[in-house]
Design a protein around this nucleic acid. Structure first.
Length: 953
RNA sequence: GCCUGGGUGGUGGAAUGGUAGACACGAGGGACUUAAAAUCCCUUGGCUUCACGGCUGUACGGGUUCGAGUCCCGUCCCGGGUACCA
């Protein structure tokens, strides 16, 4: 009978699950290969066809590597803590744990239908106490560490304490905000609370008063990467700046390493560039400006110290601590007003009118360190409190923002770099000679920067400095559904739990809202105290905590003595191939690198980077379908007819439509109704009732009550929909679920088709139009082994040259494609092979067996079935991936193109195993060649191995 | 602005500097069939020719090369990311 994918696929999926076929085996003699997907957050909407794209690719690689003799680790899990479950809980009262479990089982069911070769025995869930125990444990290690700039790595706090006890902190070089110098003697005199608060400045996880992104609607703090364009990434709510006590991770200590180590990674250039930009290294110098009345010093950071003589004012951020001090009495009112105005503006407002210039003069003046001139001090919200020193030296002639500010407030714009016209805009380029610049005159910019820093350092006005845009990462979240931070407070001092007290389990609470006093939801937990008396930290960890080390847990998922055993980690090392979306460039992928480096420093892991190779799969967009409705009479126009109407002037269009309606049996009264209200609306139709742009009108009528009595005006007997590419989403009715595709065409078809759609990395719209081609391929493959009455047949006769040629060509191509991760061309190559073999009516075992293996990573179900029919014991590991022999055993001779002066003239039969020279000779000896040369001697003969022979006359 | 990836038929897309458009969809034609579905075969970048064939062609303009979609220089578009970062 014809291939029945429904039955076959189900059987194999059950077989694989029952036999745990894909368990990463313990055979340490095999080379390892770790292929990982970014694990999903199990949302309530389930998977659409876009989600499995990356999983299919990784699964193909996993199966391919197994066939090549690798011990493959290919796990899957769930990033199951997160905001949506909690929001849903607030709305419905359903416990997030429950909804999360429901969502996970739905995801699991959907994934199982696609036939992935995940090792489910290693599944991890970040919300599982046995997992987050170790997330908490790692937090404690980070808390108990400091960053030693001398050894350039994290060390336990004990080593720091030892230094304090013997020498104080004078000689300590640490990533820290601590500026107070103390001696060993002083240290010993400090009280416990003083000691702890000093130490806090060194810890890699620390509690401090900090500016945070506060999202009132979500009631929580967000990290910088969770804020996009001034609103929260989840939900799109406004975010404001707020100062509050806050747990943070000192990721800035790792800025340089995170930046430098990017180079050796096999990631896309754009991905690396995103991280570089996010880290935002810039080198320049700090520089102090003196204020005389009252006495104060303003420190600025600049990358252009060469333009120091072009400074015509200073600008401070409105939040700058000196603002209040230096403002003169007569400016006080105006400054206060401005500061209040700036503070009340949300980040979004502030960013939205970047073009609008605002600022206020403080009345104070600073002294130019080289010219001694008085420089007015302004405040302006184009200066950010969080970057550099929160103050800039304004060089309007050579910085576009300073320029705009100066023009607006009519401040002087002295030019100090020649080569640009500054009458209309600033000249920002780092090219030209310095002018009007005292000791810098005549130098070019590069040289000027060097000289200026030299002079600044000599005069002790500042020093060369590197600045990073990267901020420490906010770690506490004022919400429920996350890992509790394993910290309790004694006399107001935070202490971490001991390992034996872990996990600190998330307590049950009766409501997921903040408490009346504004405390996070965990403040509601009753009797939740350490040793019955000390209160716990009530914020929880952010979403990125659990995902920053999960790749390690898969290596040894059930270990309750350690997050993973050293043996397991020694064997699996790190991820060989990581597949996931590019949207994680500045979030997850930075944090997971950070934690890996930390764990390496402290000796818990041996690798410096989590993933050597990264592929970002593109997004699959939806193709929305639109129908056009004449609202007055509930009549739908096929797209072509609607176009004809819409492209005409209104009156003319109505006339055309009236005729059209009349000729389509629409009654006169209805035509009148239409004339009164001639509106044509464009509505989304469910893509699942549209095939090749043709709407199934019966299903459409049944889809919605309001369309029950709809009338349709067709073109060529069909109702055609208009198509448009949009993001796949429920509200646009363009969601295609993988379940449906599996049901209709089979999992193998879905897998092949998703790969066939185009290069993995590219974003592309889902379009089922071409799926019949792939579906046909599967049927053809089946039919290779079956005769006209669908009886299984295979011949033990030796294969013909042509058959072997087709097979070997495909093996070579597919191998090459796999090495390049070019999955789409692989599918094409399968199709060519099957087409050729079909034409040759090949049913030779010698060809069909390797073919089944070759195709199996892509279409595992049908291949397993065929392999079984071929009489072999059934297992996905088959034998080995068929290896193509480089020797020209099959195609020793074939038509070789010969071109004359770059133009292809003819083909000749050549033996490819010959050397270049012999090929040249043979070409010349050919009758055809002599005819073309016509007695002349060729100037040059170029032989391109395997490609072409070129004769130049 | 900066960074990054692109620009190839009606469409999705193939081409380690070597026969551009593989493979698939769509379209057109044909076979089988009472008919439909399914299946199979042929044609399908453009221009030109009755035909064999010829010319032209990978956003545009130059260059390197025996040979360029591919490499180099310049220009124009499109997608993605990102920014008052001093």
């Amino acid at each position: 009978m014809e291939y029945n994918f429904r039955e076959v696929e189900k059987q194999w999926q059950q077989y694989w699950a029952k036999n745990k076929t894909f368990r990463a085996d313990g055979d340490a003699s095999k080379p390892k290969y770790y292929v990982l997907d970014m694990f999903p957050y199990p949302s309530g909407a389930g998977l659409h066809v876009g989600h499995p794209l990356g999983y299919i690719a990784s699964d193909i690689v996993a199966r391919y590597k197994r066939l090549n003799g690798f011990n493959v680790l290919h796990p899957m899990g769930f990033d199951s803590f997160g905001l949506p479950a909690e929001q849903y809980a607030i709305q419905t009262g359903q416990h997030p744990k429950k909804t999360t479990e429901i969502n996970i089982s739905r995801y699991r069911e959907q994934m199982d239908k696609i036939g992935f070769s995940f090792d489910w025995d290693r599944e991890v869930r970040t919300s599982d106490p046995s997992y987050y125990k170790w997330t908490q444990w790692i937090f404690i290690q980070i808390y108990q560490s400091w960053y030693n700039l001398k050894t350039n790595k994290a060390e336990p706090v004990s080593s720091l304490l030892a230094m304090f006890e013997t020498d104080g902190n004078g000689a300590v070089r640490a990533a820290s905000e601590e500026t107070k110098i103390f001696t060993a003697g002083e240290w010993k005199q400090f009280s416990e609370s003083e000691k702890q608060s000093l130490l806090m400045n060194y810890r890699l996880a620390y509690l401090s008063e900090a500016w945070v992104n506060w999202c009132p609607a979500l009631g929580t703090v967000l990290a910088n990467d969770e804020v996009k364009e001034g609103v929260s990434e989840r939900g799109g709510y406004p975010v404001e700046r707020k100062r509050m006590p806050q747990w943070s991770m000192r990721i800035t200590a790792y800025a340089e390493r995170l930046l430098n180590d990017l180079e050796a990674l096999d990631w896309s250039e754009s991905m690396k560039e995103s991280q570089r930009n996010w880290i935002g290294k810039s080198t320049g110098t700090s520089l102090k400006f003196e204020v005389q009345n009252p006495k104060a010093e303003i420190e600025v950071f600049t990358t252009r110290p060469d333009t120091i003589f072009g400074v015509s004012f200073l600008t401070l951020a409105p939040e700058h601590e000196l603002v209040e001090k230096i403002t003169t009495p007569d400016q006080k009112k105006a400054v206060d007003e401005y500061v209040a105005f700036a503070k009340n503006r949300s980040e979004r407002e502030r960013q939205a009118d970047v073009k609008k210039i605002s600022g206020q003069f403080t009345g104070a003046y600073a002294i130019h360190p080289f010219t001694g001139k008085q420089i007015p001090i302004w405040i302006g919200d184009y200066v950010l409190a969080g970057y550099g020193t929160g103050a800039v030296m304004a060089v309007p002639a050579h910085d576009s923002r300073d320029y705009a500010f100066a023009k607006h407030f009519k401040l002087p714009i002295p030019q100090v770099v020649s080569g640009g016209d500054i009458s209309e805009e600033s000249y920002d380029a780092k090219e030209g000679k310095l002018i009007n610049s005292g000791f810098l005159d005549g130098l070019d910019v590069k040289e000027g920067i060097r000289r200026a820093i030299e002079e600044i350092e000599k005069k002790n006005l500042g020093k060369g400095k590197t600045n990073y845009r990267l901020r420490d990462a906010a770690f506490g979240r004022q919400r429920y559904w996350g890992e509790p931070i394993p910290v309790y407070y004694k006399d107001g001092i935070p202490y971490t739990l001991e390992e034996k007290d872990l996990p600190l389990v998330l307590p049950e609470i009766d409501s997921f809202l903040p408490t009346e006093s504004g405390e996070p939801p965990l403040g509601r937990a009753k009797d939740w105290k350490y040793k019955g008396q000390y209160s716990y930290e009530t914020t929880t960890m952010p979403g990125w905590a659990g995902s920053s080390w999960y790749y390690l847990r898969y290596m040894d998922a059930h270990n309750d003595q350690a997050f993973a055993s050293p043996e397991a980690m020694d064997y699996w090392k790190n991820v060989d191939l990581y597949i996931g979306g590019s949207e994680h460039a500045t979030g997850h992928l930075l944090y997971v690198r950070f934690w890996t480096k930390f764990l390496k420093d402290r000796g818990f892991v041996k690798v410096e980077e989590p993933a050597q190779k990264l592929i970002n799969q593109g997004m699959i967009q939806g193709t929305s379908c639109f129908v056009y409705r004449l609202d007055a009479i509930n009549t739908f126009l096929s797209a072509g007819l609607a176009d004809a109407f819409l492209s005409k002037p209104k009156n003319e269009g109505i006339t055309i439509l009236k005729q059209l309606l009349a000729s389509n049996n629409i009654t006169g009264s209805e035509i009148e109704a239409f004339e009164k209200n001639p509106t044509l609306s464009k509505l989304h139709a469910d893509v699942n009732i549209v095939t090749n742009n043709e709407l199934d009108t019966e299903k459409f009528r049944a889809w919605r009550e309001e369309f029950k009595n709809a009338k349709f005006i067709l073109e060529d007997g069909k109702y055609i929909c208009a198509g448009e590419v949009e993001k796949m989403s429920k509200s646009k009715h363009n969601v295609v679920s993988p379940d449906l595709v599996c049901e209709q065409f089979g999992a193998d078809c879905l897998r092949l088709y998703e790969m066939f759609l185009g290069p993995l990395e590219q974003s592309k719209p889902w379009n089922t139009n071409g799926i019949t081609g792939v579906s046909g391929f599967i049927r053809k493959l089946w039919k290779l082994y079956h005769d006209a009455s669908f009886k299984f047949i295979v011949s033990d006769e030796p294969a013909s040259k042509a058959e072997l040629k087709s097979l070997h060509r495909s093996i070579k191509k597919v191998q090459d494609d796999m090495e390049r991760y070019s999955f789409n061309t692989s599918v094409s190559n399968f199709m060519i092979c099957v087409n050729e073999l079909t034409e040759l009516k090949c049913n030779k075992r010698q060809v069909l067996e390797p073919l089944a293996i070759l195709v199996s990573p892509y279409a595992p179900h049908i291949c397993e079935e065929l392999w079984k029919l071929l009489g072999h014991s059934t297992s996905i590991t088959f034998a080995r991936f068929p290896v193509y022999e480089e020797k020209h055993t099959v195609e020793t001779a074939f038509n070789y193109p010969v071109s004359l002066n770059g133009k292809t003239k003819f083909f000749i039969e050549l033996d490819l195993s010959l050397s270049k020279e012999s090929i040249e000779k043979e070409v010349l000896a050919q009758e055809q060649t002599q005819k073309i040369l016509d007695g002349k001697a060729p100037k040059k003969i170029i032989v391109v191995p395997n490609k072409i022979v070129n004769i130049v006359i």
